[in-house]
Nucleic acid binder design. Structure first.
Length: 308
RNA sequence: GCCGAGAUAGCUCAGUGGUAGAGCGCGGCCCUGAAAAGGCCGGCGUGGGGGGUCCGAUUCCCUCUCUCGGCA
């Protein structure tokens, strides 16, 4: 049987993945599946830098603006939805082109997720309460007793991961460190190509600063002001730009300061993305220089593709 | 020109006669159901130039240069 092609296009925020993806998709009969934890949200077009509907017209895009900002989202839901779309594309003889910068989401597609142990609200609430009253040290000590392997890999201050590990154990009686070994990724029926866009740090940071300015020009303030009227889900409200502007609206600092914070936090984020991607040796890196157009970059990627 | 203050990390500045820190910035890393989140690590430095005192100077003294105030 012929292998199914899947293409990934990764890279730090602001480097221009979206436009390159469209150019590339035009050459290869592909549809784009966003791999981005924030672009799934509606009413967050500007703050999450979604491509305009007009630019998404020629090539179909999936998983962009499909969720209300009040709804929570996570990697498992993403995996389920994205893989369903993948299958659907295969039946149509199309290539899925994953595009985005959320490291966990892409790894969850390629390398999989351990079998279903969903969140448990009751256990969560209890653990989070204990975190507040007794501190992360207490939870960490508990985890050390129940699952020393997991504890060894989690820092005592990393309360989120401590809670999740405890949650899994309390719910199933099995250690998360055991479950994590059963990771099921894409099997050999697929031919996966992973491309990463990169550029020198100064250029990336420059692009980010410019793009944040552009976001302000496109009505960021208005959008976020409207968003803050909702009860945003705890995932949606993590988009860079929301917290920073809330501080401004609350009168804590000036608009210039808010802009500075958004730019800085975006730079930090880009840096973390690069750390995440750097260790994945399967990625073929495409280095971008000043003046490269999306079409040029897409051409370079196309040359590396062998879609037979 | 005179008087005063200052010159220490990329920036703002602290401190000490035994070769230096803090915040911000920056760099590196971790990551399996919140991941644009969350967590960890790292000082990255010809202490303005030159001379002197001292066992030893970034610290004390002299001098030069520059910056900022004030007076002319």
């Amino acid at each position: 049987m012929q292998k199914k092609n899947i293409i990934f296009l990764l890279g730090p925020t602001g480097i221009g993945k979206s436009s390159v993806a469209v150019s590339l998709a035009k050459k290869i009969k592909a549809e784009i599946i966003s791999c981005d934890s924030m672009q799934v949200y509606r009413k967050m077009e500007v703050v999450t830098c979604q491509l305009k509907p007009r630019e998404r017209k020629v090539i179909k895009h999936h998983l962009i603006g499909v969720l209300k900002p009040q709804q929570e989202y996570n990697a498992a839901r993403y995996r389920r939805q994205a893989l369903a779309i993948c299958d659907q594309l295969f039946t149509q003889g199309k290539i899925p082109l994953f595009v985005g910068g959320t490291g966990l989401y892409y790894s969850v597609i390629i390398d999989g997720l351990f079998p279903a142990v969903p969140q448990d609200k009751l256990i969560r609430v209890k653990l989070e309460k204990q975190l507040k009253t007794r501190g992360s040290q207490y939870l960490y000590r508990r985890l050390s007793q129940l699952d020393s392997q997991a504890a060894a890999r989690i820092h005592p201050h990393d309360s989120r991961r401590i809670i999740r590990a405890l949650e899994v154990y309390l719910k199933t009686g099995t250690r998360i460190s055991q479950l994590q070994k059963n990771r099921v990724g894409l099997n050999k029926d697929y031919k996966v190509r992973i491309f990463g866009l990169n550029a020198n740090r100064a250029m990336i940071y420059n692009a980010i600063d410019r793009r944040v300015d552009q976001m302000f020009n496109q009505g960021l303030l208005k959008e976020v002001k409207a968003l803050l009227k909702y009860k945003l889900s705890r995932t949606a409200k993590c988009a860079i730009g929301i917290r920073e502007l809330k501080g401004y609206f609350d009168g804590k600092y000036s608009l210039d300061e808010a802009r500075r914070l958004i730019q800085r936090n975006s730079r930090h984020y880009a840096k973390r993305q690069l750390t995440w991607f750097r260790k994945d040796k399967r990625i073929r890196w495409i280095n971008i220089k000043v003046g490269d157009s999306p079409v040029t970059v897409a051409k370079r990627i196309f040359k590396f593709l062998d879609l037979s």
